[in-house]
Each structure stands twice: as structure tokens, then as C-alpha cells.
Simulated assay, not measured.
Amino acid sequence: MIVSIHQESPLARLQDWYRTPLGQGVARLECASVQRLLNTTFGYYLVQIGATEAFRDVLAASRIRHRILMPIEPPGTAGAQVLGAADQLPFASDSIDAVLLPHTLDFAADPRAVVAEVERVLIPEGRVLVVGFNALSPWGLRRLLWRSKGRMPWCGRFHLSTQVRDLLAEHGCDLECCEYSLFCPPLARFQGGRCSAFDAIGRRFWPALGAVYVIRAVKRVATVTPLRPRLTNPSALLSGRAVRPTTRGTGHV
């Protein structure tokens, strides 16, 4: 089952950027990481919030039976339409097995509210996958120079992976793994051989400087151990005091 959801957001422009040569190259790397991390994720319901077109094939190949899409598309898109917002998800608490956030936090007005909603709808031991642009990378430096021009994706707010990890931890989600990719500079076009060389060197010598990170975290729920009620009048035997013999009912004086 695939349900498409209309929602107004700056992420609508990101969907268009994914169709550019540079965006398509980025999407290939991101999809490879997401697919690896989804291979060991199971359940009944997977929700993707954000630009959905680039990840459609990855979700279709996942082992989770039902995929619910919340794309940022104009009204009139084919398929069922369900209104929703990333910080007010239209799902019951503890009902979703996995959530995919492809750059959703990079362009959300309130990333903390989005994470809080994701934690609410996830079942215990549910997974959240966060795809984001790394502020500590050549792409992050490019953003500092181009942000004022309002161009995609430089107009977003890039985060450090450690910042996202801490934000998830604040809402009860523990980091399971983090993958970095895209060590090639932000060129207008991807040049396959040259970018492959950049990626090989980057993964070996400075893995945390990749322009894209994919985080997988799990929602942990503290288990409560029930305690036996404390006895208000413990017996003499349990208190360690001697028990006085009785002759009641024995027939002896």
C-alpha cells in the first residue's frame, strides 16, 4: 500500500533539485546507503517524509510491507491525498515501524518538533533513518557562500551528524549506525571516475567529512520492573523473632 500525502514545505524545491544532474548523482549515493540500512529493518508500516521521488525504488524494495509517502507535491497528484505536516504527523502514537527523513531536518522550520513527532509515532524498537547534509564538509563550506542566494540545496540548514545524534538521543532514540558518503566537491556535474577516486580517499582518511550522512537510530523504551508491595505487618517468622509455641487445637494443656 502506498499513500501519497500533500504538504506545503520548502522541501518541494528539493524534489525539483533531485532532477538536476547534480541532484541525481547525490540521490544515487543516498539511495545506496538507505537501502543498506533498510535491509535489516522489518515491520508493517514505513513512513517517508519529504522528497519521495528519488527514494521510490528503495522503498519498494524494502522488507516493510506498507509504505506511506508524505511527498511535497502540488495538489492533483495521482493517488490518495492525506493532509499532514512533519511536526504534526497524522498517525497514532506507537503505530509506525520505521520513518525515513530525507533531508527533512535540513529544511524543517523546527527540527526538534519533527523529531518529537517521529518518536511519538514510532513503536518501541522502531527505527528512524535521517539523511542530511553535513555542515563539516566542502558542501557545508559552499553553503556558507551561497546561502544568501536562496539556491537549492544551499538555502537549507546543514547540521553536524553529532547534532542530529544528540537531538535523537534527547527524544529517546539511540544511534545504531552512521554512514558518510559524497566526498566529491559540489560540481555542476558528477564525473564518475574522479568522484569515485574522491570517495575512496575520503572513506579511508576523513570519513566524517562526507557531504551526506545517513543515520539509523532505534527508539528505546525503558522497561519498568514491578515491585512487590511492602508488607505493613510482617510476620514474626520473616522479622527474625522467635515464635511462641501454641497448644490451640491439639487437645493438650
Rank of each mutant, 00 (worst) to 15 (best):
E73N: 01
P111C: 06
V47H: 12
T52F: 10
A27S: 14
L29P: 00
L38A: 01
L59K: 12
A51L: 02
A116M: 06
Q81G: 01
A108E: 05
E8N: 04
D97P: 04
Q35V: 00
A86C: 07
S4P: 02
P71R: 06
P21A: 02
S93V: 12
L89E: 09
G79P: 08
A116I: 03
D106Q: 14
L83C: 05
L46H: 06
H103S: 08
P21F: 01
G43Y: 12
I72H: 11
S4E: 13
D97T: 07
Q24W: 00
E30A: 12
V47F: 13
Q24F: 00
V3T: 10
I68S: 05
F55S: 15
R120L: 13
S93T: 15
I68G: 05
D106K: 09
E73K: 07
C31Q: 07
A86L: 09
Y45V: 04
S95C: 15
P90E: 02
L38I: 06
D87Y: 09
A86D: 13
V26M: 07
Y44S: 15
Q88H: 14
Q88S: 04
D87E: 14
A12P: 02
P75Y: 10
V99S: 03
H6W: 11
A60W: 02
A60V: 03
P10Q: 01
L29I: 00
A109I: 01
P74V: 05
A32Y: 01
D94G: 02
R36V: 12
P10V: 05
G79D: 12
A92V: 11
Q81E: 10
I2N: 15
